[in-house]
Computed example of a mutant assay.
Amino acid sequence: MTKTAQTGASAPVSGPDRIPKPSQGWYRDKVTGQKYRRVTTILEQGCAKGDVLTIWAGNITAETAMAHLPQLVAASRVPERREEMTAWLKRAHLRKKDERADVGKAVHRVIEAKILGQPVPEELLANPELVPFLEHFHRFVEEWQVEFEASEMVVGSAQAGYAGTLDYLLRSPLLARKYELPESQLFMGDTKTGGELDVKGVYPEAALQMAAYRNAQVAWLRDGSRVPMPPTYSTGIVLHLRPEGYRVIPVFCGDDVFRAFLTIQANAEWSSGLSKKVIQPALALPTTSEERAV
Rank of each mutant, 00 (worst) to 15 (best):
residue 128 P to L: 08
residue 120 V to I: 14
residue 111 I to N: 06
residue 106 A to E: 05
residue 36 Y to F: 14
residue 126 A to S: 14
residue 92 A to K: 07
residue 98 D to N: 15
residue 54 T to M: 05
residue 39 V to C: 05
residue 136 H to P: 04
residue 149 E to A: 07
residue 77 R to E: 02
residue 107 V to S: 09
residue 81 R to Q: 15
residue 78 V to E: 07
residue 39 V to N: 06
residue 83 E to Y: 12
residue 147 E to N: 13
residue 65 A to R: 10
residue 155 V to H: 08
residue 43 L to E: 01
residue 166 L to I: 05
residue 88 W to C: 05
residue 131 V to W: 12
residue 163 A to N: 08
residue 32 T to V: 01
residue 113 A to I: 03
residue 119 P to G: 09
residue 166 L to V: 06
residue 80 E to N: 09
residue 63 E to H: 10
residue 118 Q to T: 04
residue 80 E to R: 02
residue 51 D to N: 12
residue 116 L to C: 10
residue 68 H to W: 10
residue 93 H to Q: 06
residue 112 E to A: 13
residue 115 I to H: 07
residue 81 R to N: 12
residue 90 K to F: 13
residue 134 L to Y: 09
residue 33 G to C: 02
residue 106 A to F: 13
residue 110 V to G: 04
residue 159 Q to S: 11
residue 86 T to R: 11
residue 40 T to E: 05
residue 166 L to F: 10
residue 37 R to A: 03
residue 98 D to R: 15
residue 132 P to S: 13
residue 48 A to R: 08
residue 79 P to N: 00
residue 150 A to E: 12
residue 93 H to K: 04
residue 129 E to F: 15
residue 152 E to T: 07
residue 118 Q to V: 00
residue 68 H to C: 05
residue 90 K to P: 04
residue 34 Q to E: 12
residue 31 V to Q: 09
residue 117 G to Q: 11
residue 72 L to D: 06
residue 121 P to R: 06
residue 33 G to K: 03
